[in-house]
Design a binder for these strands. Structure first.
Lengths: 163, 163
DNA sequence: TAAATAAGATTTGAATTGAAATATTCCGTC
DNA sequence: GACGGAATATTTCAATTCAAATCTTATTTA
């Protein structure tokens, strides 16, 4: 992936849809802030943050995984996963196992408490989005997906570096 | 805004567009990671991060502002702004002024170096989107805006809490 | 006027994030 | 078997983010 910083080229009067672009940037920033506020709230009420919850759900859906795999599922670097696992382990929700023939690999496994949490967990994003989308005709949902996909494609994260 | 964590209601087979919802969550996560990778790269090449740059641009476009106003422009809480200003001040790009009759208020002002940076600034993440969007017909851009707006509307972040 | 309240900025503390450096282990080649 | 490189996990470091608490200053109320 080429994530290169480009040479400055400030928008001019000739950039056709400049206001629309501003609107898009603005909406993206809103999405991200909503996400951030939600994870803080989650943490207060359930003592588990969104990244931690995503990690738990990845393990619940896929079985025990090494950190490198978790990183791919939840789309963060593996150095980030280490910290998340640390905190989940402190809470007794996961355990680190060294049971692979390859002794570089460790396996992260849900404890019983971790499985219980996975079953009763709040959704990893606002229920509002899920509920809101349920009320839309499938065509509109597809439109949203198309739009987002175009954006991520522009950002060249289609092929996220696997590290 | 009520951003409350709602009672768990895991999606079931009866949730029609479940995979599409997952796809949406996935794409949002991608947007976030793209933003994060970009800001690291920016920081390495220009010694200024994306939030710092956005702060500089907000000041450039609107003139000197107090931290509380900057927070609104770049959509973060004001305690976050304090840290950003600290680092910009250390780099000599902005200065804190106490020139308001209300002595609680401080004003952040660009230095000459700060103005130079604003003029020659590397593009914030926007530029990639701008360049990408230039190649799309206006109708598709509007589609993207519509989709994002629907999402943020669902989150009821239309009225982001001002703090 | 005195006390309570509000507003603006900051401090503190915890979590996330990724780059870079560091171990540890494995694997191929010599 | 020894060495060099690749893979896996971790550590370290700096930046961002927000909530909550704190400090200072204004404003309102009693």
């Amino acid at each position: 992936m080429s994530n290169n910083v480009q040479t400055p080229s400030r928008a001019t009067a000739f950039d056709a849809p400049h206001d629309l672009v501003k609107e898009i940037i603005y909406q993206i920033r809103r999405l991200l802030q909503a996400r951030e506020l939600y994870t803080k709230e989650l943490n207060k009420k359930y003592q588990v943050s969104a990244p931690q919850l995503n990690c738990i759900l990845a393990l619940y859906e896929n079985g025990p995984l090494p950190p490198s795999q978790i990183a791919k599922y939840i789309m963060v670097k593996s150095s980030t996963v280490t910290g998340i696992i640390d905190r989940l382990e402190q809470k007794g929700l996961v355990t680190r196992l060294r049971n692979s023939p390859d002794r570089r690999v460790i396996t992260i496994e849900l404890t019983e408490a971790g499985k219980r949490l996975a079953n009763n967990a709040p959704p990893p994003i606002q229920q509002k989005i899920i509920d809101g989308l349920k009320r839309l005709p499938e065509g509109e949902i597809e439109e949203i997906v198309r739009g987002l996909t175009k954006l991520t494609y522009m950002l060249e994260v289609q092929d996220l570096p696997v590290e």
